[in-house]
Design a protein around this nucleic acid. Sequence first.
DNA 1: CTGACAGATTGATCTATATCACCACAAAAT
DNA 2: ATTTTGTGGTGATATAGATCAATCTGTCAG
Lengths: 234, 234
Amino acid sequence: MSKRNYRDLIKGNVPVIPEEGIFRLLSTEERASILKSVTVMNFSRHDIIFRQLMPADHVAYVTSGMVKIYRSGRSSRVVCITLAGPGQFVALPCAIDQGEYRFSASAVESTEALMIRSDAIISLIAENGRFAGELFKRVSRDIIEISDKLVSLSVKQLPGRVADLIRYFSEDVYNSDDFTVPLTRQELAELIGTTKESLIRTLNEFRNDKLIEMEGRRIKILAPDLIDILCELG
Amino acid sequence: MSKRNYRDLIKGNVPVIPEEGIFRLLSTEERASILKSVTVMNFSRHDIIFRQLMPADHVAYVTSGMVKIYRSGRSSRVVCITLAGPGQFVALPCAIDQGEYRFSASAVESTEALMIRSDAIISLIAENGRFAGELFKRVSRDIIEISDKLVSLSVKQLPGRVADLIRYFSEDVYNSDDFTVPLTRQELAELIGTTKESLIRTLNEFRNDKLIEMEGRRIKILAPDLIDILCELG
DNA sequence: CTGACAGATTGATCTATATCACCACAAAAT
DNA sequence: ATTTTGTGGTGATATAGATCAATCTGTCAG
């Protein structure tokens, strides 16, 4: 799973701006010009991409793999704010605000990312309205998603939150009712503000009640309708 | 406090785009053009500004008063996502995403707001890079603020969250250590994901421990340093 | 003057879930 | 080969804070 191959160790390959997704909104010149501000980086599991409190001088654009964005207070528990997969930006808000990273980010599996200098993104926003609009739309969706999480966390109790988690992986990440997460129980727990013990117990209840099938990190949803109901009524 | 005067009842006055704040980034023509898409509205306490699930066809820009943005599930508790005061936009992300309102918003005190048609904001973003940049910065700060709240909610227990709340009013809203909130205990509780009873008990502990002075809705911070410590260690 | 109603407060329970203290297993390191 | 480390898992216990049930206040309408 975490075996490194030679390619994984190369950091700073020749960058290529993807043709698809948001970058299709760039002109040939903009593409060429931003290239100077981009570095390709490869990370393996546990590699830190950036650390909270550091100046937010780069935005990461994930091309493959998965990244977790989290906050770790000095003494207290780790909170995972969100995950980011291929096609998603990491730390955009921190860079736009021209401040420091307010979170840390690390790779949860082998991950490739374009590290784009913040100033390059900021000037693109000022110059290319369509690009700005699309980026804006993404950040707006992020706000809505985080707000949903806030609500989930404050009103739902564990079964509801675990159901949310399962649905999140199924619908937003893997687009399948049968998936294998690259995260430990501990990390799954951090994602929904609980402890690994409580998460394990709740997952087991789900299994006993035939809502899911589970071996190790593989989860298969058996009763999506019941999961949905749990998500609803918390 | 909540006495209405004649002006409060007028809805749809002649709109004027403020000279200060973010609108200074608009050209004279842009100002004139957006004017056609703006309506001034006056709301009194409890007036709904918009309701979740409705099409997000307007953004509100608060010119005076205070608005709460909240989510209310069918059966469950109300969660207050955030408050917005003068100079702040409400529902920007929902409008940018061109979807529906994902929250409801209502006035907690007499409030005046410019209701700006979403399409007008969206075309301004595409056309005016500086304006887009500034708006972007605001939304980015909102994301960071909400993430902080998410962390607060998942790791801190009540005393820490109440301390957060007090500091929020003192530093972010009123810029004073002596302020009067326009919210009921219930609403304060919804802001930090707890119940009115628990909030009251915690506030009383704070009073007994001489952290604050309190009569009714007026709060005076006596020991800001201790409040800060509570915010830190949750 | 008197209900009636919304908000604030207090006390007595109850419970979801954190915490603590383990064990089991596999992979990696020595 | 054996120790160590990381991860998954279980049971017992403790507790923060929700919930329930009153009471008390001030305010407004009739």
